[in-house]
């Protein structure tokens, strides 16, 4: 019971992007995933990538409002990592038989499908931003992601006043939208 409530708290922390909670999850489960990957023709770097992706899958899941894991956190993470690694192996075309099932696993295909869609959105947005170029990229980041005020931004970016910054931001946003919609297609 205690672990369940603890895990519940950790998940809530994760949803809020709370560093402490993420650190705890990382510390508790990373080694298990690493041995899974290393035992199945992977490198430590692969283990890191796979584990972090699994955390993002988990994050998206709790973000979308379902804190309910119908299994232990460990089992969930393990299952996600196993599926992710299987997929990666087939992409890399490394000669490999089925990944050894060291732990019990639960079906996570649905979550991963959702994740893939979101990941695609993420990539599109990232590419759009990269394409936008400076200073637009930083300007958009500062305002929409870091949620800085226009006054701050004007000071940081050296605009004479916040209205000027707002104008610049507007132009950047329009361009980003255009690029984004092009990539979307």
């Amino acid at each position: 019971m205690r672990t369940e409530t603890n895990e519940q708290k950790l998940l809530e922390g994760l949803a809020k992007n709370d560093r402490k909670s993420i650190e705890t999850i990382y510390r508790q489960h990373y080694n298990m995933v690493q041995s899974l990957i290393l035992n199945n023709s992977g490198y430590p770097d692969d283990a890191r990538d796979i584990f972090q992706e699994a955390i993002i899958v988990l994050y998206e899941k709790v973000k979308s409002g379902s804190f309910e894991l119908n299994c232990q956190l460990k089992t969930y993470l393990y299952s996600v990592c196993r599926r992710l690694w299987l997929k990666r192996l087939s992409q890399l075309q490394r000669l490999s038989s089925d990944v050894e099932n060291l732990e019990e696993s639960v079906p996570v295909e649905e979550d991963l499908e959702l994740h893939e869609q979101r990941n695609l959105d993420f990539m599109v947005m990232e590419q759009s931003l990269d394409n936008l170029g400076e200073p637009c990229k930083s300007l958009i980041r500062a305002y929409y992601i870091e949620k800085k005020s226009m006054v701050e931004i004007a000071a940081d970016f050296g605009y004479t006043n916040s209205d000027n910054a707002k104008n610049q931001k507007y132009k950047c946003l329009m361009r980003l939208k255009k690029i984004f919609s092009q990539y979307k297609k």
């Binding site: 993420i22 990382y26 993002i56 979101r118 959105d121 947005m125 990232e126 980041r141």
Partner: peptide, 15 residues
């Protein structure tokens, strides 16, 4: 979408 991107981006950096 921009928001989600920002959050995930932040999470990745954090991880």
């Amino acid at each position: 979408q921009l928001n989600k991107y920002g959050e995930v981006h932040q999470l990745r950096t954090q991880l």
